[in-house]
Computed example of a mutant assay.
Amino acid sequence: MSPKRERAEQRGREGEAEAAMWLVNQGWRILAERVKTPRGEIDLIARKGALVAFVEVKWRAHAAALADAIDERRLTRVAAAAEIIAYDYAAPDDDLRIDVILLAPGCPPTHIENAYQP
């Protein structure tokens, strides 16, 4: 892995940790981090009451780049991965959704609830 890619990977992990702490401060419980499936990876899985969220975290060095950080292809991949493991983390009566948390230095986290709606 190139040094540039290693730095990006490290910053991504730091962003996921920051997002997890922010969610915990909002009353969520983190169930899992960096869950890999045959269809892709889910950055965070979090629970709040009877709601389980599969969370994609995006960090950018500049807030202006956040607008392009997430797209339909990425959300579809997260949804496909969540479909495989959803009931490893959720009870049959729980609500499920795909959320996104966008992070940039000097900006509060942006939490996009129910970001994926097929």
Results as ranks from 00 to 15, higher is better:
M1D: 04
S2G: 06
S2L: 04
P3A: 01
E9K: 07
E9D: 06
E9L: 10
E9T: 10
Q10P: 01
R11D: 11
R11K: 12
G12M: 11
G12K: 10
E14D: 14
E14N: 10
E14Y: 13
G15I: 14
E18T: 15
E18A: 14
E18R: 15
A19P: 05
M21D: 07
W22L: 04
W22F: 15
L23A: 02
L23P: 01
L23W: 01
L23M: 04
N25W: 02
N25G: 06
Q26T: 03
W28G: 02
R29T: 12
R29E: 07
L31M: 11
L31D: 06
A32D: 07
R34N: 06
V35C: 01
P38R: 05
G40T: 09
L44N: 00
A46W: 00
A46T: 00
R47M: 06
A50V: 02
V55N: 01
V57T: 06
R60A: 08
R60F: 10
A61G: 09
A61V: 06
H62A: 14
A64M: 09
A65T: 08
A65H: 12
L66V: 09
D68H: 15
A69W: 15
I70T: 15
I70H: 06
D71G: 14
D71H: 12
E72W: 09
E72I: 10
R73K: 14
R74A: 15
R74E: 14
L75C: 09
R77C: 07
R77K: 15
V78M: 05
A79N: 05
A80G: 06
A80N: 09
A81H: 05
A81Q: 01
E83S: 14
I84M: 13
A86G: 05
A86W: 04
A86L: 04
D88F: 12
A90D: 04
A91R: 10
D94T: 10
D95W: 04
D99E: 10
V100N: 11
V100C: 11
L103W: 14
G106V: 15
G106E: 13
C107F: 15
P109R: 05
P109E: 07
P109Q: 08
T110E: 14
N114Y: 01
A115W: 07
Y116E: 03
